[in-house]
């Protein structure tokens, strides 16, 4: 072995050089790892979505006396029980966004912009996102814990042993329940936001009757806003539901990993909803 000072220096120089390279390369490596992880997750979630879709098609209507009550239960859980908090959020959104926007437009003498602005802000963007995030926070996290615990304790295998398809029995009702809830809660949130927003603006001296106010707002809606809103909110609900069920159910999980799965669910759902939301921007720009 060559132990001369030169070779040691050369070696240490090389080591320093490679260390520097490592330092420079580490952010790229981390970014690469993150990207690969994101792609892997996307691929797995897509595969899970396709399996769920296949189950929906092949088992549509089968065991309806078992599945229908479960869907009703999930709509009650994700929709009806979340209604009070969504009402409060809608009222807050009304005061903060609608009320203040109207006040501002009155101050600058641009009240004619009120309709398009409020439709863009509330109907197209804030209400669908807020409703889906609220469902994610109130129901999604609990569902991941519930499914993850079931998986960790072997209850999913018990279902399979009985010939009961876990996707059919556990995933589909939750998916339908969450998607329906997000669609309906968005409509409620829009109504509450405009109602409370008008009230706030009226109390602050807006010279406009309720009929005129709601006439301006509805007049700014395009017919295509209705199917797009339904598509967007159903998309939010389905994506959130798929991600929730994927993290809770689709892969082997230990009981101590359930918390981490819940955190991942929230992060992935938020990213997925925002990415899906971005797809609608070009469509709205054309309107």
């Amino acid at each position: 072995m060559d132990a001369s000072p030169t070779s040691v220096a050369a070696r240490s120089g090389t080591a320093r050089g490679s260390g520097r390279l490592r330092t420079i390369g580490s952010p790229f490596r981390a970014a690469g790892r993150w990207l690969l992880g994101a792609l892997t997750n996307t691929r797995r979630i897509t595969a899970f979505s396709l399996i769920t879709l296949a189950t929906l098609v092949t088992k549509f209507g089968s065991a309806s006396r078992v599945i229908r009550p479960l869907i009703q239960q999930q709509i009650l859980r994700a929709g009806v029980r979340v209604l009070p908090i969504v009402s409060v959020l809608g009222a807050a959104l009304g005061v903060v966004i609608v009320g203040q926007t109207v006040q501002l437009l009155l101050q600058v003498g641009q009240i004619k912009l009120m309709g398009p602005l409020l439709v863009n802000l509330v109907v197209r963007e804030l209400a669908p996102l807020s409703a889906s995030l609220m469902v994610l926070a109130r129901v999604g996290t609990a569902t991941v814990v519930e499914l993850g615990t079931s998986r960790a304790l072997g209850e999913v295998e018990a279902l399979e042993a009985l010939g009961v398809d876990p996707i059919h029995y556990l995933v589909l009702p939750r998916l339908v329940g969450i998607a329906t809830a997000v669609v309906c809660l968005t409509v409620y949130m829009i109504l509450f936001a405009f109602g409370f927003g008008y009230l706030f603006a009226f109390l602050r001296g807006m010279p406009m009757g309720p009929a005129e106010f709601f006439g301006v707002v509805t007049g700014s809606l395009e017919w295509v806003d209705f199917p797009l809103l339904a598509l967007k909110t159903a998309g939010f609900g389905l994506m959130t539901g798929i991600i929730i069920c994927y993290h809770g159910l689709a892969q082997p999980i230990r009981i101590e990993e359930v918390g981490e799965a819940t955190t991942r669910t929230v992060a992935h759902s938020v990213v997925a909803c925002l990415a899906f939301d971005a797809l609608f921007v070009p469509i709205y720009m054309l309107l």
């Binding site: 072997g154 209850e155 018990a158 042993a161 009985l162």
Partner: peptide
């Protein structure tokens, strides 16, 4: 269809729901 022909009792608390 095949699993319906088996009845499996798991250990412990039987993995009830």
């Amino acid at each position: 269809a095949q699993r319906r022909r088996f009845g499996l009792v798991f250990d412990g608390n039987g993995r009830l729901f």
